[in-house]
Write a protein that binds this DNA or RNA. Sequence first.
DNA 1: CTGTTTCGGTTCATATACTGAACCAGTGTT
DNA 2: AACACTGGTTCAGTATATGAACCGAAACAG
Lengths: 269, 269
Amino acid sequence: MSSASKALELLSLFSEAQPEIGLSQMCRLAKRDKATTYRHLQVLEKAGFVEQVVASKNYRLGPALLQLGRMREATVPRKAGAETPLATLVDVTGETVHVSVLSGSTLFALISRESPKHSTRAVIDITTFPLHATASGNCAVAFGPDEMFAAACENFEAFTDLTPMTPESLETLIASARTSGMGRSVGCFEKEINSLAAPIFDQTGQLAGAVSVASVASRFTPELESIIKTALITASREITKSWGGTIPPAIEKAWNSAMPSHQELDTSS
Amino acid sequence: MSSASKALELLSLFSEAQPEIGLSQMCRLAKRDKATTYRHLQVLEKAGFVEQVVASKNYRLGPALLQLGRMREATVPRKAGAETPLATLVDVTGETVHVSVLSGSTLFALISRESPKHSTRAVIDITTFPLHATASGNCAVAFGPDEMFAAACENFEAFTDLTPMTPESLETLIASARTSGMGRSVGCFEKEINSLAAPIFDQTGQLAGAVSVASVASRFTPELESIIKTALITASREITKSWGGTIPPAIEKAWNSAMPSHQELDTSS
DNA sequence: CTGTTTCGGTTCATATACTGAACCAGTGTT
DNA sequence: AACACTGGTTCAGTATATGAACCGAAACAG
């Protein structure tokens, strides 16, 4: 592994729950030597990716990220394009929704919104979606490039006792996602949380991300599932359109056979 | 120089004017070998810091930056805190304004706003402020940590024929900034652009950034300069307050002697 | 006070992982 | 068909990253 990767990995250790990390703690989290970690932090600090809080000597994310994040959204306005369909999705389903973006073989969280409708909500605060254990992740494997399956198999972390742990069990999930046109997770990532996800595509014709709805298991009736599926299909179509892509015919077909009442819009004109 | 630094440097080659860069072009910009640049891009892509546009094979900033930028602003809400004073500053001066943030020895651009008042505006689109050639940069050297002067001397790039090119000429500018409590650039960065800058501090008591106003030289009368100075002092006080800092007494004193009409607020209570 | 355990940061010999010239293959131009 | 561009790959040589051991400071216990 390149030293640059190792340095960049340190950035993913920060989270909303732990926005400041000291040197020693970071060594433990990164499972690396103190001297190495220190040098990496020096590099990141010089580049403005982290900064040191003078008082506590802790490190936190740096100002350059704001700059670069702003420029990313300026060049590829994905966040802006997904907001409106996502708001509708929250309204219609009354559940927690996520939009994720695929880059390389990693599925990054982009936006998440919670509905105020219920007091018990699915709160999932992650920065990257595990490919094997989430509806969005399964979506990415099922409809993304072929190498996604191998990438998913590289990390079979067990989140619950329902998390798929072998290539075979994952393959089953992927196959069912391919036939239904949607990812589905029943307690695979968190117990008592079920979720559904639909793929999103961009102008390259490749899978660009996923949109998902997470609900608590006790509420997850067939009626709600049907509502969510219909709303997800709409959201996926709209976000895909705003990102400059089109839904592949195979997926429209899968949706139509699974949800015959929800006809594909005529986009041939 | 570490290889990680070299990889991170590539990110600073992207700009609003040039949001997509191909491999060969990036080699030229970075003045590095093609193989090395390629590997660096691979690392950055795997980390989600850049992504490759499949159609053109060009690279652009990646989705991870959005994620990290969001987290940075969540942990250190500097941008939000500077917006309001900055809007006032634009209103009062009718000129282009910038807020920059110091990290390490680099001064990063944070926000910039243009006034709709004049058709000719100072348009300065940079991601980092040269320490020797800008009002904000001089501010950082004058009021920041001691090592800033050495850092400034490491890069004496000549932007115009008025850009200071020697430690001695820079020293003169810094000295006058220290006595007036403000940075001042007269065509040092761009010909026909004059600007003034005031320092910003945070809870560490250290300099945290600078706020600046840039005007076209033909408009830069003593009256306008006076208006700008007064407005800058107000903006600097407000942003500093919102970032949890206080203006050092020495600077308040410098402002008061330079602008006797603009009394320091009584903050002793 | 002294012994112990943290912490952030530094050193230096070792060897690992980075470098870049040269090389492909593909594409568009002349 | 020769050329000038791309993006991407290979491999020997060496520059650069590594981590055990070390340091001084600070916090805590006895």
